[in-house]
């Protein structure tokens, strides 16, 4: 201690900047750039730091809420709840950990699957909740994922998943490991049926989730600067005994090495995915030609003859766009399609 600090009255001595805390409620701190931010502004910005564009972690409900159209949402597999088949106990019982996680998040387990719409276009979306035991994949996560996929398969509507997970859930041991095989197998069914699957990897997507469903997208998307990989950086560092390269296992690193197609800013996520799904569905129906429903550019729809392809005239003019999947099942909400602008109907 210098003579100067000794002179100062003890109350004025400040130890370290890191100790400074942010009052609860109104203000929040960006974990990346440490900027003090007005909470309402951050929320408006979809939990992206307005100063440095850092994408903060968000829970599954919020994610789904931000992504989906507000109407016509239906949760899938809500009735499923975790159990403790192994009577697992470490320093704490698995049962107690579950109760604690359920209390903290208000969710029963770490994945929520919802059937809804994106800019009027029907689809199924599932999101991991990292706050629930690190978004770990156990039996309920696997089963809800499968139910979401099954719904997508049944109605031939796209399936989108937002991953945020540390990997398999150790407390369910081999049952968790087998969820990797289970979720991958249902995705193979989707692929065979030509149902698009878009995987969005958010911070973090690791281990068993990364090494199964998350890497199997027809299109793999990552949020900026998300940690994505198989083994955790600490494990790798201990194994290879060298310093890891800068940006290792971050989204940009993965894109550079060919593992993800696109890095998409959260604020553009809705637009981007709607656009991609439109492109995918368009090609599919141009070739298949036998889809039951055609959608005109004014948002109305008509039933086409089962076998007949879209009229050559209309197709040539580029005005007919078939939506993916069974619009008979969920009548298209023309209003939200029109509002969305780039929904099923492309404004050209």
């Amino acid at each position: 201690m210098s003579w100067f600090s000794k002179l100062m009255p003890s109350k004025i001595r400040t130890d370290a900047l890191s100790k400074s805390t942010v009052p609860e409620g109104l203000w929040t701190k960006c974990p990346q750039c440490n900027a003090i931010l007005y909470k309402a502004e951050v929320e408006r910005n979809l939990e992206v730091c307005p100063k440095c564009d850092h994408h903060m972690r968000i829970n599954a409900r919020k994610r789904l809420h931000l992504f989906l159209d507000t109407d016509q949402r239906q949760e899938l597999g809500e009735e499923l709840a975790p159990m403790d088949p192994l009577k697992f106990k470490d320093s704490k019982k698995y049962k107690d950990r579950l109760v604690q996680a359920q209390k903290a998040t208000g969710e029963k387990d770490a994945l929520i699957a919802v059937r809804g719409r994106l800019k009027g276009q029907p689809l199924v979306v599932a999101a991991f909740d990292f706050q629930f035991m690190g978004g770990s994949m156990g039996s309920v996560v696997g089963e809800r994922f499968v139910r979401g996929a099954a719904c997508a398969l049944e109605f031939k509507i796209p399936f989108v998943v937002f991953s945020a997970s540390g990997g398999a859930r150790m407390q369910e041991s081999l049952l968790s490991l087998f969820q990797m095989a289970k979720t991958s197998a249902v995705l193979a069914r989707l692929a065979d049926a030509g149902v698009p699957f878009i995987s969005v990897m958010t911070d973090p997507t690791m281990g068993g989730v990364s090494a199964s469903l998350a890497m199997l997208g027809d299109i793999n998307i990552a949020e900026p600067n998300a940690l994505i990989g198989f083994a955790g950086p600490r494990v790798i560092e201990q194994t290879v005994r060298e310093k890891l390269p800068e940006g290792f296992q971050r989204s940009e690193f993965l894109q550079e090495h060919g593992a993800v197609d696109l890095i998409v800013d959260r604020r553009q996520m809705r637009d981007k995915i709607a656009e991609l799904l439109n492109l995918l569905s368009h090609g599919r129906h141009r070739f298949a030609g036998e889809r039951g429903v055609l959608l005109k550019d004014d948002g109305t729809h008509e039933h086409a003859p089962r076998i007949a392809p879209p009229s050559a005239e209309a197709a040539e003019a580029g005005t007919v766009h078939a939506g993916i999947g069974s619009l008979e099942q969920l009548p298209p909400d023309a209003e939200s399609a029109a509002r969305g602008g780039t929904g099923i109907v492309q404004a050209d």
Partner: peptide
Amino acid sequence: PGIGAEERGQSEAIARNLF
């Protein structure tokens, strides 16, 4: 769990096999 393994897509390789 190595640097090269991650660079060449360990996750994707495993996932693809399961699929």
